[in-house]
Amino acid sequence: MSKMKRWIAVGLPVAGIFVLTMPAVAAPSDDRQPEEKWPEPMAAHPTGQVLFDRLEFSHTDRDESSVAWDMLAWYGGDRNRLYLKSEGENRLDDGKPSDLHSLEVLGSRLVSPFWELQAGLGTAGSTASGADRENYVVLSLFGTAPYRFEMDNALRINEDGDVSFSLEAEYDLRLTQISYLQPRLEVSGALTEAEDFDRPRGINQLRLGVRYRYELSREFAPYLGVYWSRSLGQKADWLRGAGEDVTETGVVVGVRFWL
């Protein structure tokens, strides 16, 4: 017991000296700035991209060859953008100029996390000088549907008041980190008949395809694939009356790249 008292007698003064000589720990001060003075995490600035989703050579069961393109370019921010879209085809060895399926300039507004509403002007027809092209206004819903289907749905009204529509959907099925299988669906039709442009009322064309793409880099990916298309309804009747086929099957070799 006396030993315990001696330890207490020695320990208490030592503990007191230790406490008194410890450096003072200051209480944290609240020097945070009000929210309105917070710096911007990143300055908003416009950017852009040029994407050739398809630049391909195709050969059909009719022994016809052609080169086709599907290009999209945009510039702007997260909510507002300016788009340039172009699709077309040049049949080889037929002596005719390229056929411009569409060339459109559109303003775009993000209306939900995955969808943009677009509106603008477009033209379609032969690229020959002085050719009589179809000019139109276009309204498009462009974006990604559930399960990551990329879609471009458009409604077009030309100078004569003829109304046509198109639907495009594709899906990237990842096979490896650098290879994809891409099914693709295209449907086109019209709400009014336009004989000058060989476009009857109704659903006129269905096209299904699949492509295997291999990325040599993120910006450059060659691919190969197959497609099948069929004319429908009155459009098919017109083609049969002219002695033409209503179906077409082909193989494609191409490249997808962006800048």
Rank of each mutant, 00 (worst) to 15 (best):
G48V: 03
R256Y: 03
G11Y: 01
W74E: 13
V25E: 15
E248H: 00
A119H: 02
R174M: 03
W38S: 14
E116C: 05
E116P: 02
Q182R: 09
Y75S: 11
L239W: 02
F18P: 05
S166I: 00
T60F: 03
F114P: 07
K85A: 14
V253E: 14
S166C: 05
S126N: 08
T47W: 13
D93N: 11
R199T: 08
R156Q: 11
Y212L: 10
E150L: 04
E248I: 04
L141K: 04
E195K: 08
I203P: 00
V25F: 10
L167I: 02
L155N: 09
A190K: 04
T247V: 11
D53Y: 01
E186D: 12
S65G: 01
W69Y: 03
G16F: 03
A119W: 04
Q205R: 12
A15M: 13
G241F: 01
E195V: 01
L208D: 12
K3T: 10
S129K: 06
W115K: 07
D63T: 04
A43Y: 01
D196H: 06
V163G: 14
D99V: 01
G243K: 04
D31V: 02
G95E: 05
E219R: 12
V253Q: 13
E159W: 00
F257N: 14
T21E: 15
R184E: 12
E159H: 02
E219Y: 05
L224S: 14
D160A: 11
A15F: 03
G88R: 04
K96E: 12
L55E: 12
L51C: 11
E168H: 00
W115C: 10
G76Y: 06
G143D: 10
P146N: 01
E219M: 11
